[in-house]
Amino acid sequence: METKDIYREIINEHNLHPSHHGEISNPTYEMDGVNPSCGDKIKLQFKVDDSGIIEDAVFSGSGCAVSQASCDIMLDLVIGKSREESERITEAFMRMIKGEASDEELEILEEAEALADIAHMPARVKCAVLGWRTMEKIFKENRQ
């Protein structure tokens, strides 16, 4: 996919009109993610129930279209799923960004597959993974 098409696919819905941008009160988990080189700064907030299901999640902060859209797509995918499932999805996403994902992995990534070609834009990889890395960290630091 050309850079132009990546932008078309990801920005239309997710950058200009994100579904999960905002803040929630009393989140179970909250974490900041920073991209020092570009100044991107996001905050992730998760509401997770006792059985480990992600009931709701939002992101706030500022960043480039790639990081914002990737974050929004990520939350679309994991809301309603268990933390184990979300960790599996994250793993698949990271492998996809490296160009190593299997067909099965691509399937569970659904819309996030639109970001697969970021692998050809090495400078933008860290933008695409900012939200994912932050979510990974939330679950790693809060093992049940």
């Binding site: 850079t3 932008y7 570009c38 480039c64 279209a65 790639v66 834009m121 400078a123 933008r124 933008c127």
Partner: peptide, 13 residues
């Protein structure tokens, strides 16, 4: 409304 990294990627095309 445009992050500089997006601007740079677009100019790169």
């Amino acid at each position: 409304g445009c992050h500089p990294h997006d601007v740079s990627s677009i100019l790169d095309t």
